[in-house]
Amino acid sequence: MRERTRELAGTLVFPLAGLALITGIILLGGKSPVQGFAALISGSLGGAFALAETAIRACPLLLAGLGVTIAFRAGAWNIGTEGQIYVGALAVVALAPALGMLPAPLAVPAGLLVAAVAGGVWAWVPAFLRTRRGVQEVISTIMLNFVAIQLVSWCVHGPLKESTGQFPYSNEIPAALMLPRLLPPTRLHLGVVFALAAAAAVWVFLFRTVRGFQLRAVGASPEAALHAGIRTERSVWSAMAISGALAGIAGAVQLMGVSHILFEKFSPGYGYTAIAAALLGGLHPVGITLSSGLLGALEAGASAMQREAGVSTVIVYLVQGVIILSVAHQAARRRAVTEAIRQRGAQEV
């Protein structure tokens, strides 16, 4: 019983401390915490508009988070989702004139495919460098983020600048490439359905196919996978390529569903938040669906909070930080238990 109480206290300590901290900071800013939190909730969950905003903000997080999951499960640390998002969107914009000639039912899948290939190739390069040259993918994927972001920046200042040549953003994509709205006048678009379908597909892939099992085996123990005849190199390549493809699709969905143009800072760090979403969701498609929903809700609520209670959106990043810390704390506790069991196993050898 005492154990149980301690467990519960351990689980709650971070969220409660975090809540207290945030309340204190809002008070210090001379605003009402009650009003602030109320706006946060109503802006993300109160009504169709708020829910639609939450969903479209969760959408790129979910898609990219699924990509992160596949890579991490295979033991490949793809920190490059941000860059893969940019590259995915860039590829669609670059080919938009051609893609736009296709009839709408073909243009959208073709656009997603183009983005998937671009993101996949962008992520496969670090995988190749790791398996053949021993380059740490943690470093190379991050570096490729900067390359991708600068590449987009150069493109929208140069070859892809809008037709009048005045502003540093691309032309609007052709209508055939725009994702249909599901519930006008809200901005909810078809991409949300794609994201949920992707979550289901990733679940089936990871837990119900031999290939998915092989990826997880390579991630859990490359040595055991090797001795079981699994091609570890190929597994890492395909995990990274799928991972990058999903991130690329996340970029395309954001472009085709929401922004319709490409510009600098196109992604406000979706790729990094997606990593948080993936870890928060326990690298499991169901968990990531929930965690990206939560993070999406926070982002949607943030603007409402600033508008209605005058509390800066920065507070939301504080909330995100607290959530991530508390999850990390939980994970560390779980790991300590696992480690104790493993120690016992090791002793018995």
């Binding site: 031999v210 099992f213 085996a217 123990s221 040595e223 055991a224 001795h227």
Partner: peptide
Amino acid sequence: TQALLLEFPLRENLLLGRW
């Protein structure tokens, strides 16, 4: 290190050797 995936359930460890 070579024959088992320690964190995985026995069911998936059977699959490891027999896939």
